[in-house]
Amino acid sequence: MFFGGAELLFVGFMLLYGLNWIGLVLFTGAMGLRRRRWGTPGGGWMLVSAALYGAVGLGLVMLIPLGVIAGPGNAAWVESVALASVVVLIAVWVGSNAALAKALFTAWRAADEAVKSQGSPGVGA
């Protein structure tokens, strides 16, 4: 499946994926600089998540030449390396999702604290 004939679609899609996450890293970083929010609750997890996503996207893009090279009749160890790399990247993908959820929950807790510290809910905001 991985070494099939749809490489072009795969390349395009994975480039999109990689670009999306490069964009997210830049967006998060620029937002932190612009708003001086490096102390933003959960911001560190957000950056961790963005970095892991970027690693997955980049790793998959970099696997494509390996996948194209490792067509039928290539060395078995090349395919083994490719398959094992994909397994690792899938695990990283789960980790990036978990980090994103962690960032979200941390931000929610901080927002709750802020709203609670306003006393009655009608004040401020």
Binding site: L24, A107, A110, A111, A114, S117, Q118, V123
Partner: peptide, 29 residues
């Protein structure tokens, strides 16, 4: 594309709420 994008958007909204902390309780943070 949609899942992390929308979740990031929601998190940024929560950050905007968290930064309005009038009695500065977040000094502890």
């Amino acid at each position: 594309i949609a899942c992390p994008g929308l979740v990031l958007w929601g998190t940024v909204v929560s950050w905007r709420v968290a930064e309005r902390d009038p009695d500065l309780d977040a000094a502890a943070m």
